[in-house]
Amino acid sequence: MKRLPQWAWALAVLALVLLFNLVLTPGFFHIEQRDGRLYGSLIDILNRSAPVSLLAIGMTLVIGTGGVDLSVGAVMAIAGSVAACLIARPAESPLGGINLHRSTPLILLAALFAALLCGLFNGILVSWLDLQPIVATLLLMVAGRGIAQLFANGQIVTFHLPSFSAIATGSLAGFPNPVWIVLLTFLIFAVLVRSTAFGLFIEAVGSNPVAARYAGVDARRIKLAVYALCGVCAGLAGVIGTADIRGADANNLGLYLELDAILAVAVGGTSIMGGRFSLIGSIVGALLMQALTTTILTRGVSPETTLVMKALVVVAVVLLQAPAFRSWAVGITRRRPA
């Protein structure tokens, strides 16, 4: 028998959640077309999971090297603030002097560049200073929101630029733009890690750094690259979040999303210790998280329950992944007479 992929668990739970809705939530699978765009709960799940999916793609590579990036939420806030300030150019903002002539491509590039710098900062701390990833990225997680607020001068900077808002609110061939952005990012990353040796190097660094070094893998450069890429993914998620609400809220944009992203990656079958990762699994994980949230909202259960549910789901999935728990569970079932 061919071994099931690690993310089969997540897919099964996702199917279960959808099945539950098929039976108990009327109209959950109803999809209608209005003004050339599809609407419905399923489309909503795809659309709303986009920021977490993007974060999860970047996070998958970082966790693959045995690290973790806690700063992605703060990096989202930085990218969002940069974009909003460059468009609205409030007088109090330190970025107010830069004029990009409200050009959406340039503003997008500037926001992603800011996110790339954040990612490189994390990467340098982890690779060259050899700091523990949790600690190194904690730094930007604490200071990042401060920097984002500094850019926006503590305000919620709002703007009106239809071509920029379209990044989140527009649609193409019936599907919302964020869905296409996630698909495109996923394809680029999939090619990058599976058609080149990059993915292999990541797994080598994650599973045994010493052996990887003896095999001639430059762990520092690999780590620098994955944190930089993770930063760019977070920047993209921040741009979507900002374009969606036509404003940047440095305090709340991306708050706790780093946790959702880590959960999505863990649920998706990527080993949290590093050395084995699955991009498609992380996407499934992000969809599962969003499907749970949407289900809870449409069932009229209070939204706080989502937090408790997420906590229980992650403990269950992590337990199922853990070798110590598996052998313990097997021991229990064997001891019991049939």
């Binding site: 209070s302 706080e304 329950t305 989502t306 997420k310 992650v314 853990a322 313990w328």
Partner: peptide, 30 residues
């Protein structure tokens, strides 16, 4: 207990704890 018995990464378990406690707190009163 989860960390000690099953050798699970502490940041992941306590991350779940973070969600759990905040959820319980909000259930009690918003």
């Amino acid at each position: 207990a989860l960390v000690a018995f099953f050798r699970l990464p502490s940041f992941l378990i306590t991350l779940a704890g973070l969600f759990f406690c905040r959820g319980v707190a909000l259930r009690i009163s918003q």
